[in-house]
């Protein structure tokens, strides 16, 4: 316990990195999810194919492999593009950027499926009715699709988010000083790895518990008046 107090600065700063990483990558995931779902549901064959390839790769390749690939290979690629186009000489892909970008894009793939499913759950008649009323497409999205989509997507969204927080642990492998990395370094130098890894485990448990109760609250708030089976 004393040891944990001695290293508490490291653990706290690591936890903060983890939280920032998770939240920023969530923003990217939601954006990619919306774009992906839009592409999958559009009538444009090319957009459909691209979105299909995107979700296939995300499902087919483990996130850690992609993180390593982006961090090591992406840097090289970014430099080469810069040299070829002459736009920049050197673009830094930091561990944080590689982590946020990759986890965001990977979970964007899962969000794509969630949002697509949610949009498909909206009765077609409502959209037809909106068209008949003369609403423009953005208005239909804003007034008809979005409010219902949020409700239908919430269980899947919650699930993705809980998986995503846990996935942030993987960035410690590329040396980003998140809570796992700092905990591991502390445990290694004090030879008390169980103590520190257990502390890290508890920190994650707190993070997921907070998210879980927050999402349940949102779910209760938004799903009033909607009947849904219990298994979500």
């Amino acid at each position: 316990m004393d040891l944990i107090l001695e290293y508490q600065g490291q653990l706290l700063s690591g936890t903060w990195v983890t939280i920032k990483l998770a939240l920023l990558s969530l923003v990217i995931a939601v954006l990619f999810g919306l774009i992906g779902a839009g592409a999958k549901l559009s009538r444009n064959i090319v957009a459909q194919k691209i979105a299909g390839g995107y979700t296939s790769i995300v499902r087919g390749v483990p996130d850690l492999v992609l993180i390593l690939l982006v961090f090591f290979g992406g840097q090289e690629l970014a430099n080469q593009i810069g040299i070829l186009t002459g736009l920049w000489d050197y673009a830094e892909i930091s561990q944080f950027a590689a982590g946020v970008g990759t986890i965001g894009v990977v979970f964007g793939g899962y969000m794509t499926e969630t949002f697509r499913g949610a949009i498909l759950s909206i009765p077609k008649g409502q959209i037809e009715a909106a068209v008949a009323c003369g609403m423009s497409r953005p208005t239909i999205f804003r007034r008809v699709i979005w409010p219902q989509m949020v409700v239908y997507a919430l269980p899947g969204f919650s699930n993705n988010w809980l998986v995503q927080i846990k996935s942030t642990a993987l960035v410690s492998v590329i040396g980003l000083q998140d809570v796992v990395y700092n905990g591991f370094v502390a445990g290694r130098s004090t030879r008390q790895l169980f103590t520190f890894m257990f502390a890290v485990l508890m920190i994650y448990l707190v993070l997921t518990a907070i998210s879980d109760s927050g999402l349940r609250w949102l779910d209760r708030k938004y799903s009033k008046g909607i009947v849904r089976s219990e298994d979500g």
């Binding site: 846990k166 942030t168 993987l170 410690s172 790895l193 169980f194 890894m197 485990l201």
Partner: peptide, 23 residues
């Protein structure tokens, strides 16, 4: 189930591999 579903597999694996050797 709550403990194992609420925490990363990476940390669980570290805890067993690196952690248990502490004792």
């Amino acid at each position: 189930t709550y403990l194992f579903r609420g925490t990363p597999l990476l940390v669980q694996t570290y805890l067993i591999y690196y952690g248990l050797g502490q004792f």
